[in-house]
Design a protein around this nucleic acid. Structure first.
Lengths: 341, 341
DNA sequence: ATGCTCCTGATTTACGTACCTCAAGATCTG
DNA sequence: CAGATCTTGAGGTACGTAAATCAGGAGCAT
């Protein structure tokens, strides 16, 4: 049978109370005693039964997810995944609350983070706006012992516990390679799009993209970045205008959201005039566009995985456990027409 | 607070014992009482605390992983992942045992499965050899209420609980699209490789690959499949010979293992003569080749994810819980030089 | 030696569920 | 209506850990 704390106490020749003090890092144990207990744990291969421990603690994990009140498909989906996780979380003693803040608004985000600090919850996951005041707010939370996970978009130079999202620079580089190779010898310009250069994920993607285009497909000219604020209508307007203005657009890379507008603009073009298009996030609209060959590749981050990963990290952090690094690496899914799920 | 069995009893106006009888399907409860309890469960949104229940039952999950005694990189890695999962599983009352059977040996696999049946364990995960007698053995286990998960390679027409592995046909199609687009207008033949066409994974990949090449890149000539038996030396010999024989090989798709031999053959070619190469499984050798641009893309299945997914399904099945389908879909990772983890 | 702090043991209660026993009430059988 | 059988209530113990209390011993400074 699996050894219990009682076995440890017996083997170490100390009382249950002392074992408890050592295992839970409580004060009031001489080093000699501590060593005896640790030796017994080692010798018997004791592992704490987390189910029993949580039962005894009557612990409830209080977590908050703060998401931008953005109605693009990706954020909607992310919201659904958080809600699904909240439902499942109930049976594992997790209370998961979802809060909205205005998009791209550092002050609102700071207010939401400070509220978490006041309430003294166990952990928070949020989509970062990369601003100094947000970083300061996040660091205050960490200082207070609250687990802080950034979701989708990271916060530079902060002390956040973990980032649950993809390596956006690698994603941009991957998009660059696919663009360069799919274009091959076809002449023409490349147009990059973003939601906003204020969020770190879009900025990093574009940096990776342009770096690879420069390094490996240097002859290709790249237009200045257009910012569509993740809004379909604005994005469509910008793209339509750019296509009209520059006659030879051969490739479009969209690093942000609001791609319904882009897709609609593409559908107006003749098949021959259609550029190679690579964009992010698998949504009903982009899936449809991919299977109809309006676009060529979709780079995706799985919102469900990100939410579940963030939760695992928050829980592990609250329990003082280690995380499985490989499991928490969020992968960049590359979807072509052929491997749509 | 979350409702407990006591709350149910109070709300239904019955005793704890009756609630217990209803919840655990014990006999001796009149339909009227049963309905009252069920109504209370519904009304209060009661969900059984699995941790407490397992603690009370003293339940231990007994799972077995049966892997082929094959020493290629992928299987070695799979074995390591199972061992890591076994260590972590201990703290969640899971006993995970790893057993080897000779590779591609239906009789040995059947014996191992029958042993699981005799021992009355809770679940088994195994790499299937696709044979009728294996299917029959798997069905016997399912019949006995034991959870059965196939890993990496599936078992056709069986009643297995779940398959933890990738869609190999989609993987082959994806390879085909990448090959066609990477080649672009470059002239030349395409050479497909496999370990053996007797193995179902390889066969499905090649079918998907050739289907896409035919549908969308029809002008491209494809050579007959070479079978390297997953052996590096044999693969190298075949590839070297094929390159010498047909002067214009522009692309190589390797659906199987033994890719070290292929990579060595590629390293002998001049940069200009080097074909577009797409192959499977990220190993130290293929990773190195990718970063040195000896090969162009690697399709990968994440062994760690497969093992963890199999375990989640086994546990959910043993508890009678539902699985999160989206979480258990094993994805086809596409690695370029730019998004290597 | 006195009072003080620090360390340790012994013991108890609690968490939510499972499962057991025993007694008594309800319902059925003839 | 008596007896048998089924259903229900009441109460307990157990699982493995956490966390608290209290008493007393060791060690220290004064």
């Amino acid at each position: 049978m699996k050894p219990t704390v009682h076995d440890i106490a017996a083997h170490a020749g100390v009382s249950l109370a002392t074992v408890d003090r050592v295992l839970n890092g409580r004060a009031g144990v001489r080093p000699a005693m501590k060593a005896k207990v640790e030796a017994a744990v080692e010798a018997l291969g004791f592992v704490r039964d987390v189910a029993a421990a949580n039962l005894a603690k009557g612990r409830v994990y209080n977590f908050v997810f703060i998401l931008p009140a953005n109605n693009n498909s990706f954020m909607q989906n992310l919201r659904l995944e958080v809600q699904a996780a909240a439902e499942r979380g109930a049976r594992e003693r997790m209370s998961i609350v979802l809060r909205d803040v205005p998009a791209f608004d550092p002050a609102a985000l700071v207010a939401a983070l400070d509220r978490v600090l006041e309430e003294g919850l166990d952990g928070v996951a949020f989509v970062a706006v990369d601003a100094p005041e947000v970083r300061a707010a996040a660091d205050r939370l960490v200082e207070a012992g609250i687990a802080v996970v950034t979701l989708v978009s990271d916060l530079s130079a902060s002390r956040r516990t973990h980032f649950a999202g993809i390596d956006n620079s690698a994603a941009g580089r991957t998009a660059g390679t696919l663009m360069g190779r799919f274009l091959g010898a076809r002449p023409g310009l490349v147009l990059p799009l973003a939601g906003s250069l204020m969020v770190r994920d879009h900025r990093e993607r574009l940096e990776g993209f342009t770096a690879v285009m420069g390094e490996r497909f240097g002859a290709r000219a790249i237009l200045p970045v257009l910012e569509g604020r993740d809004d379909p209508a604005e994005t469509e307007r910008l793209v339509t205008q750019a296509i009209a203005e520059h006659q030879g657009i051969a490739g479009i890379y969209s690093a942000g959201a609001g791609n319904r507008g882009l897709i609609h603009a593409l559908s107006m073009l003749s098949r021959e005039a259609r550029p190679v298009v690579i964009l992010h996030e698998l949504t009903p609209a982009t899936r449809e566009a991919l299977s109809q060959e309006l676009i060529d590749a979709v780079l995706n981050q799985d919102a469900g995985h990100e939410v579940r990963s963030a939760l695992r990290v928050l829980k592990a952090r609250a329990d003082g456990d280690a995380v499985i690094a490989a499991q928490e690496r969020i992968r960049i899914d590359i979807f072509l027409k052929d491997n749509l799920p």
